[in-house]
Write a protein that binds this DNA or RNA. Sequence first.
DNA 1: ACACCTTTAGGACGCTCATCCTAAAAAAAT
DNA 2: ATTTTTTTAGGATGAGCGTCCTAAAGGTGT
Lengths: 190, 190
Amino acid sequence: MKKQKTRDHIVEAADLLFYQQGFEHTSFSDISDAVQISRGNFYYHFKSKDDILEAVISARMDKTRKMLTQWELKGSRPEDRIKCFIRILVTNRDKILNYGCPVGTLTTELAKIKHASREEANALFTLFRNWLKEQFTQLGHPADADNLAMHLLARSQGVATLASAFQDAKFIDDEVTQMCEWLNAYVPKE
Amino acid sequence: MKKQKTRDHIVEAADLLFYQQGFEHTSFSDISDAVQISRGNFYYHFKSKDDILEAVISARMDKTRKMLTQWELKGSRPEDRIKCFIRILVTNRDKILNYGCPVGTLTTELAKIKHASREEANALFTLFRNWLKEQFTQLGHPADADNLAMHLLARSQGVATLASAFQDAKFIDDEVTQMCEWLNAYVPKE
DNA sequence: ACACCTTTAGGACGCTCATCCTAAAAAAAT
DNA sequence: ATTTTTTTAGGATGAGCGTCCTAAAGGTGT
């Protein structure tokens, strides 16, 4: 079925554009230019711009869930899995320098314009939060797990914002190193 | 002269609206409604919307500079002055929960839309950065001063973003406490 | 009372936007 | 080959935007 394929293309292009330019600042023309599709034809696939946003968020949720399970397979120890999270900053360094954190910037924008889908965007944060919480629990800190998860989320978020503002790649690397060291203090010695 | 007074009112109202709704999402009608002034009359005071933004940023720079000198008078020791910075999160808790950090959100928005004034907005970050750097130097860490300043900026930024996303006031308080403890490790013992 | 400068109001303009509509093209089914 | 369904293109619509223009109102000095 061709419909699904076109729909996926639209979501993919919108996803990228929403990240690079922001949701409000991205018009239908921008998306149609990227997908090479007629502007008016959008409404065969989506009923509104908000509808595209929902699809984009939903796609990001899926992609994130897959990434998290990937990390669970890659790192056998919880500390290794958490380090996978910390290192996204390094992995996506260039994107972050240019456009900031995809989760943080979208959440902030939608909150500011009081968009109906802002709760759905927040769910992306919750996904990471709960996953990290689980890892910290497995690491042996069940009581503090949620606090540690929030702490790590906040630090990553701050690093992304500042690195982007100052175009400072080295800052990312330094802070990632520090976060790994911070994490090591919570790894039980055998 | 009445002109200056009206101009100040406009800047004040625009400042608040840009913070609460974002720059792009705030229209001339929004501002004129707030100031109770005719929409078309704006162009007697400003030559464009971007011009208002410049004035708002400039006003924020002035206000920030005043705040920083205030802190220098209030805290005689550098560690006390740095704690003034850390505690803005607590002081402005409600605003931050609703609208995030004024500096971070504006910087991020302007960067994303590649607005001409994004460098000017970044200067707000630089103001804090240099001031903090100076305090850490006075604290006896001249070599690390800039790194420590960036680190603290990033943490505050992250806390604001996450607290706003999760509407979590307690998270702000906890993290502020942690940052103060972190700072204490850098205070020389006598 | 008059002239002059400052400040204001509010409509007009052109543009872009999200959305809708309809007819044609493409594909699939018969 | 013909009918039916799916998918497309592109113009029309109406609203909101930033901006501009002009005439009037307000204030001030003579």
